[in-house]
């Protein structure tokens, strides 16, 4: 890892070219984690260099635990937009909904730091109505935060039922079909959709016909994201940005820009700006 530091530093020092070329489409990556194991294995300076080299204009970052997000925000406040994940360690994805101590954790962090959102959390079906998720939604309401839900459509509906004015970023767009995503976006004007870790929207640089309809109908609602769910996937951030640029080229430039970065800036960074 020390060598990587050297290489990245060299790259940055020798060439501002490590920064993206002028014509390169900026990317707002709406799905980044810098969890404890990533922070252990990737030096903070390396992580920031990866974000910059990828040409990221912004990154919505949440981590298990939140310390990684805060370190990264401190190191790159121009890129990182913090969100608060209800996980303190890896392994709480399935247990947090019934763990009341999660609320104590969220409250403590919310007292101390500013965020754009609470998430990304994993929440499915009727679990959304359990006491812990309900209290989490109340906290989001109290602090004027978005929710970033890795959820099925049912859970998203339940979240809106609890708080009709909620602003929800639907992680991976629920891994649902584009037709279903469109139906949800039509129904909920405060719903946005991230496309992290899905590949069906494009193949070989060509946008899928059904997804194209969704993008054209809702140009202001989609964002791209890497999802660094393991430490190794930090090294995919640059590849993902390039992969996204490739398929976004198949859309009209104005629409491509919206999905690539403008929606992230207008929705997520704006939400953070309101909190500061």
């Amino acid at each position: 890892m020390r060598l990587l530091t050297v290489l990245l530093t060299m790259g940055l020092a020798l060439a501002p070219a490590a920064a993206p070329a002028a014509a390169e489409l900026p990317i707002f990556d709406a799905h980044v984690h810098f969890s404890h194991d990533a922070a252990d294995q990737i030096a903070l300076s390396d992580a920031v260099a990866i974000l910059r080299k990828a040409g990221l204009k912004g990154a919505l970052v949440s981590s298990s635990d939140d310390a990684g997000t805060q370190k990264l925000y401190e190191a790159a406040p121009d890129i990182v937009v913090p969100e608060l994940r209800p996980y303190r360690r890896r392994g709480e994805i399935g247990s947090w909904v019934r763990d009341a101590t999660v609320i104590d954790y969220l409250e403590a962090r919310l007292k101390r730091y500013q965020y754009a959102a609470i998430g990304e959390f994993h929440l499915y079906g009727a679990d959304a109505d359990l006491p812990v998720p309900r209290r989490m939604v109340e906290l989001a309401k109290q602090h004027d935060l978005m929710l970033h839900a890795h959820s099925d459509a049912d859970a998203v509906e339940r979240l809106f039922a609890q708080w009709p004015q909620a602003r929800i970023l639907w992680a991976h767009s629920g891994f649902d079909q584009p037709q279903k995503v469109r139906a949800m976006l039509r129904k909920h004007t405060n719903l946005w959709a991230d496309l992290a870790f899905r590949t069906d929207q494009a193949s070989g640089g060509k946008v899928d016909a059904e997804w194209r309809k969704a993008f054209e109908e809702f140009p202001d609602r989609f964002m791209v994201g890497t999802d660094t769910f393991t430490p190794e996937r930090w090294y995919f951030i640059g590849e993902h940005a390039d992969w996204s640029r490739e398929w976004l080229k198949d859309l009209p430039p104005a629409l491509a820009e919206r999905i690539a970065w403008k929606n992230g800036e207008d929705v997520i960074r704006a939400a953070f700006a309101r909190r500061r």
């Binding site: 890896r90 392994g91 994805i93 399935g94 994993h122 890795h150 991976h172 891994f175 870790f197 899905r198 999802d227 769910f229 393991t230």
Partner: peptide, 10 residues
Amino acid sequence: LDENRLHTEG
């Protein structure tokens, strides 16, 4: 198996 290393797609 560490499920946290595997993505929950599909």
